[in-house]
Simulated scan of single mutants.
Amino acid sequence: MADDSTALTDVVDELKDASEGKETVEVGQLIDALDQRGYGPALAVLPLMELTPLGGIPGFPTALALLVGLLALRMLLGYEHFWAPNWLRKRTLDTDKVLKSVEWLRPVSRWIDDKLQARLSRIAGATGQKVACVVILCLCFSVPPLEVVPFATSAPMIVISIFGLALLYRDGLLMLLGFIGAGIAAFAGASYFLGG
């Protein structure tokens, strides 16, 4: 178990709390809810939103990739807090869709909380984090062209989420799996677009 056995579930609950009681929720409100817990939870949860009903909204995967890329860049540069441009923070999402997405994530987060733990922590240390940030940025750049292929944006988002979980739990084994997943995603993407 991780030090906090409900780490990811707590993050999902905070997203729910930030969304309830409104007809729409601003992206900035979700960012602020995640900012309290740091980069690991944000990089773990935000990419998974692409797998929920929100992922079906045209342009959402690209906007999500932009946000995740900004977070990874700030982490790489050593900033403690999140930042997103005002036009992205002010973008609104239907609260019902956000809450449905959060409810979809809840059992997933409970399962993850139960399974992950700190392992091979040195791999998930400062150097591993910087390399992961660079890989995450590359994965984010791959999302916009993949939107033309049904369900293709899910692959890079899942890999990014693996990196986020590795950071959240200080799990070096999961970090290694993230690097392997990124390599597989890059190979599959290149093969598809090069017609091989």
Rank of each mutant, 00 (worst) to 15 (best):
M1R: 11
A2Y: 06
D3Y: 09
S5L: 11
T6A: 14
S19A: 15
G21E: 05
E23Q: 14
V27P: 00
D35I: 08
Q36V: 06
G38Q: 10
A42S: 14
L43C: 04
L48C: 03
M49V: 11
E50D: 14
E50C: 14
L51E: 02
G59H: 08
F60T: 06
T62A: 13
T62P: 01
A63K: 12
A65D: 04
L76M: 12
L77V: 03
L77C: 06
Y79S: 12
E80I: 00
H81N: 08
H81K: 13
W83M: 10
W83R: 09
N86C: 05
K90H: 00
T92K: 02
K97G: 04
K100N: 12
V108W: 11
S109F: 05
I112G: 07
D114T: 14
K115R: 15
S121I: 10
R122G: 07
G128R: 03
Q129Y: 02
A132V: 13
I136L: 11
C140F: 06
V143F: 05
P145I: 02
P150V: 08
P150H: 14
F151D: 06
I158G: 00
I160K: 05
I162H: 04
I162W: 13
L165M: 11
L165Q: 12
A166G: 12
L167T: 08
L168G: 09
Y169W: 06
D171M: 08
D171Q: 07
L173S: 07
I184A: 15
A185W: 13
A186M: 13
S191N: 12
G196V: 15
